[in-house]
Design a protein around this nucleic acid. Structure first.
Length: 491
RNA sequence: CGGGAUGUAGCGCAGCCCGGUUAGCGCAUCUGGUUUGGGACCAGAGGGUCGUCAGUUCGAAUCUGACCAUCCCGACCA
């Protein structure tokens, strides 16, 4: 079945692309590297947004909005930051067009050149800290806990739908604190919020850890990240939380008077997740039939499909189906009754499987006669006939089961594909063949990290928080090491 | 930005080498009918500046050149 989809095991990359297009999540736009997020894909983003927003607010954050444009000069204030983003910035140089007398059409009006060019934000630290300068005077103004939902632009060389696009949607939290300890605590708190979200809503197990110096965010003192394993054995960074120290406060001269009347620079964090999470969601759970969505993020949790031969039968079935529908809706389950006469049931079955709707209920004459329903779960593709009476509770329980099951399945996959290795030959072999997470010793030097990347394309995804102290020798250099770190090829 | 490939109907492709009827095929679309428990069938219909510009030629989807765009593989990245 799913005959229009490339087989996952034959060509994973093509399968992913097909899936995004066929499931109607997004498509390429007229602008290179930019995608159109279609209603079904955007509905998933809205579910993600709604849940994260709730979690941010529960941890004391509020939303605000800062401009899309950043004066060029702001960027040069923080040296590492500009270094990190300079190569992928879109720049506005003019503000007006005029008719092109020679060719027809329009051209840039050379007289409308901006005095100072504007950068389209690749991230908002600079424009936000420029504002924070005016907002913070005293310890009484702190902490400042702000989040913004926005789009950003990073002029990437190679793009892939959801995983890496030139423009993407995300949220970015930017907080300001009176003490180092408090900022560090915030950084950790937010990586935990992300991990909680990804595991309990996206049903995707993650590894939490520190980034190495070379993988750190430009301008950060420390970057914390959550890493997930995709079905092709590659890692994907799903979220990051940065401890920025006093770097941005110094760059934008944001000082405050503390309790003792002493002037000090403010401590900062920033953290974000993007529409990339949708890519993770697709890659982690889906199969050759199409998407598999965790019930908690599925725009549509259940669908009811009538099977009928004539109008009279449809009428009878509809009255039963609509009752089921309102029963489910009362329990907060999102459900659609698809009584379109334009497609046959078989077509609908295949289509809702492609779109990853967790539960499907079919009602036909047979069911009306026997007072039963046919219920199908997307994750295992199992079908059973059940008595119509307890349908609401049954579906509710089934949705919980599905959520738990796909998380469990992803967890098993991650465990089966995590290797504790001590030999370089094994490291190369695993990386080249199956892929997966590799826990190995590393001597701590950026040189070794770079050599490993060069030879195998595997990078240190993170130094896991829970990686115990353990005497060992670096898998590459043989030098002493005190703990294992997580290696993988990544997106 | 380096290496490779592709561009023909909404989508997927054939035709191109070896220039010559009205540019085909599958899916999708529209109309009518029969159907409906796993992607229905029959009959009919509509839809094309053959990526763009230039050149060769009596004649170009087909040959030549330039340009543009997209995809894949690298370097860079959430």
């Amino acid at each position: 079945m799913a005959k229009y989809l490339t087989n996952r095991d034959e060509n994973y990359a093509q399968w992913y692309n097909d899936l995004v297009i066929k499931a109607d999540l997004a498509e390429h736009s007229a602008v290179r590297g930019c995608m159109v997020i279609k209603p079904y894909g955007y509905a998933i983003w809205e579910k993600i947004q709604a849940q994260l927003d709730k979690m941010f607010k529960a941890t004391g954050h509020v939303n605000a909005y800062f401009p899309l444009f950043i004066p060029k000069s702001f960027f040069s204030r923080e040296a590492e930051h500009v270094e990190g983003f300079a190569k992928e910035c879109a720049i506005v140089t003019h503000y007006r067009l005029k008719n092109d007398e020679s060719g027809g059409g329009v051209m840039i009006d050379p007289s409308a050149k901006l005095e100072e060019e504007l950068i389209i934000r690749p991230t908002s630290e600079t424009i936000i800290w420029n504002s924070y300068k005016n907002w913070i005077r005293s310890y009484r103004d702190l902490p400042l806990l702000i989040n913004q939902w926005a789009n950003v632009v990073r002029w990437e060389m190679r793009t892939r739908l959801f995983l890496r696009t030139a423009e993407f949607l995300w949220q970015e939290g930017h907080t300001a604190h009176a003490t180092r300890e408090e900022a560090v605590e915030e950084t950790e708190k937010m990586i935990n919020v992300y991990a909680d979200f990804v595991e309990n809503y996206m049903a995707l197990p993650v590894v939490k850890g520190y980034k190495t110096e070379s993988e750190r965010f430009a301008g950060a003192v420390d970057t914390l990240a959550i890493e997930a394993l995709m079905q092709d054995g590659k890692g994907l960074q799903v979220g990051t939380s940065h401890f920025l120290g006093q770097n941005f406060a110094r760059a934008f001269d944001v000082q405050f008077t503390d309790r003792n009347g002493k002037l000090d620079y403010v401590w900062a964090t920033s953290w974000g997740v993007s529409t990339r999470t949708i890519g993770a969601l697709i890659m982690a759970h889906s199969d050759n039939h199409g998407l598999v969505l965790p019930p908690r993020l599925a725009p549509l949790q259940a669908v009811i499909i009538p099977i009928y031969k004539n109008r009279e039968q449809l009428q009878l079935i509809s009255s039963v189906a609509l009752k089921i529908k309102s029963g489910l809706e009362e329990k907060g389950i999102s459900v659609k009754y698809d009584d379109r006469d334009t497609n046959k049931p078989g077509w609908k079955f295949a289509d809702y499987e492609l779109k990853g709707v967790p539960v499907r209920i079919a009602v036909g004459p047979r069911d009306i006669e026997n007072n039963t329903l046919e219920i199908f779960r997307r994750d295992t593709l199992e079908k059973e006939t059940i008595p119509a009476a307890g349908i609401t509770d049954h579906v509710k329980k089934l949705l919980d089961d599905i959520q738990a099951n796909i998380f469990r399945k992803a967890g098993l996959f991650k465990n089966d594909n995590t290797y504790y290795l001590d030999s370089w030959d094994d490291f190369v072999d695993i990386t080249e063949t199956r892929g997966g997470f590799i826990m190995a010793h590393w001597d701590g030097s950026p040189e070794t990290e770079a050599r490993i990347k060069e030879e195998t394309k595997a990078t240190i995804r993170c130094i896991p928080f829970d990686s115990p102290e353990e005497e060992g020798r670096c898998i590459y250099s043989g030098k002493p090491s005190v703990r294992r770190v997580l290696f993988a090829r990544s997106y």
